Simulated scan of single mutants.
Amino acid sequence: MRFASLTVVALGVLGFGAGLLWVWLAPRAQFTVTSADGGLEVVGGGLVDPELFMADDGVYVLLMAGLGLIAGLAVWSRSARRGVVALVGLALGMVVASVSAMQLGSLLGRPPSDEQLSTVGAVVTTALDLNMLAALAVGPFVAVLVQVVAAVVAGRDDLGRPGTDLVPVAEPAVAQAPAPSGVVAQARPAGPTIQE
């Protein structure tokens, strides 16, 4: 249980790092304010809005898939801790990481203020936001998939944990009922008997 809790906390912290990477790597368009009523002009012919949204989501999905892959392999490498509790901790930790990365990215990549939009000549940058909320499931899915594939490849019921070598179970002995008192059991010959 302690290992699962530490996994959740560690992945939550790594989620903030993924959020910083998302802010740094995601493409964002810059505009120059051309009029006080919020008229904008694209600086340097950047991406149009739909392409920009897809690119932001794509960078986020790749970052979360990479973090899920690394986290899944790291948890599996702790061979003494393999099992259901570690798997639940990993999945929950990746959910926390995904949400914290999205929240930090949205906070640092917030849209321009009304004051910036009313200042003629100011250069403003588009907001960073996750438009496809299903992307939050990518990290946990990849992390759990790594665990499932590793368990299948391990091919052992104990998942390869040290000190848990399986001992073959002996077949239970079949007890024979004692013969009633005064009756002597006689051995019968094998095979069919011929009656006269």
Rank of each mutant, 00 (worst) to 15 (best):
R2V: 09
A4F: 07
A10G: 13
V13S: 10
L14D: 05
G15T: 00
G19Y: 02
G19K: 01
Q30W: 00
F31E: 06
T34S: 11
S35Y: 02
D37G: 06
L40G: 00
V42P: 12
G44R: 06
L47N: 05
V48C: 10
D49F: 03
F53K: 09
A55M: 11
A55E: 13
D56S: 13
D57K: 01
G58P: 01
V59F: 10
L63C: 07
L63S: 04
M64I: 04
G66R: 00
I70V: 14
A71L: 07
A71P: 08
L73M: 08
W76C: 04
S79L: 14
S79R: 14
S79W: 08
A86C: 04
L87C: 03
L90I: 03
M94H: 03
A97D: 09
V99N: 07
V99L: 14
S100V: 12
S100K: 02
S106N: 15
L107K: 09
S113I: 05
T119Q: 14
G121M: 13
A122R: 11
A122S: 12
V123Y: 05
V124A: 10
T126A: 15
A127V: 07
L128M: 08
D129T: 06
L130A: 10
M132P: 00
L133M: 08
A134Y: 06
V138G: 04
P140W: 05
F141P: 00
V146T: 05
V149L: 15
A150K: 02
A150V: 01
V153A: 14
V153L: 15
A154L: 11
A154D: 14
R156S: 15
D157H: 05
D157M: 11
D157Y: 05
D158H: 08
L159C: 02
R161Y: 03
V167P: 06
V169I: 14
A175S: 15
A177W: 12
P180W: 04
S181T: 12
V184H: 05
A187D: 07
A190H: 10
T193G: 15
I194K: 04
Q195Y: 09
Q195I: 10
E196C: 12
